[in-house]
């Protein structure tokens, strides 16, 4: 745990740990923290026993929505989410890719109706590892490289 001190502790909020180093800033982006008024610490390239290096994002005074957790699961499938109260982890959960993704992803097919007319997006996860998802509308199958978050 001493290693974690490189990023300051928070009293209350959420810590996302075990992010692949190169996805750390993407996770921060998903959380749309530009206008967040409380403490945010982002640590990247931290040593990790299991991952080599990893990233951590700590956000005071924030809990995650389902859409945010789903998005994190897509780019950081082994991330853990720790919920902090009084400087202590009161709940620790592992993200998991859900069976369907609502308004989380942009379809990679430029001819898909969802890219041409205002509408929700919906994808079905047909394989989690390797990640493959299918658009509910145009039925295109996308692999991890094609996936763009909304």
């Amino acid at each position: 745990m001493t290693k974690e001190l490189t990023v300051s502790a928070i009293e209350e909020g959420t810590v996302i740990d075990h992010i692949p180093s190169d996805s750390t800033f993407k996770v921060a982006e998903i959380l749309k923290l530009e206008s967040h008024g409380k403490i945010i610490s982002v640590g990247a390239n931290l040593p990790s026993k299991t991952m080599g290096t990893k990233g951590i994002v700590k956000v005071a005074g924030k809990s995650l929505t389902k859409e945010e957790v789903d998005k994190i699961a897509i780019i950081a499938p082994h991330a853990t989410v720790n919920i902090i109260k009084n400087f202590e982890v009161i709940k620790k959960l592992r993200v998991s890719i859900p069976d369907s993704l609502h308004n989380t992803i942009k379809c990679s097919n430029p001819n898909c109706i969802t890219n041409n007319e205002e509408s929700d997006t919906e994808f079905y996860v047909i394989s989690k590892d390797p990640l493959k998802i299918k658009c509910h509308y145009c039925e295109r199958v996308m692999e991890k490289e094609d996936i763009r978050l909304l």
């Binding site: 097919n109 001819n111 109706i113 041409n116 509308y137 145009c138």
Partner: peptide, 28 residues
């Protein structure tokens, strides 16, 4: 019948009456 893929599925979600897809782009 619509040139964009997925149009028929969206059309069906909008309509309370049954929708038959007569071709949605390169899809179905």
């Amino acid at each position: 019948r619509h040139p964009l893929e997925g149009a028929a599925r969206l059309a069906a979600e909008a309509s309370s009456k049954p929708v038959i897809n007569a071709g949605d782009g390169a899809n179905q």
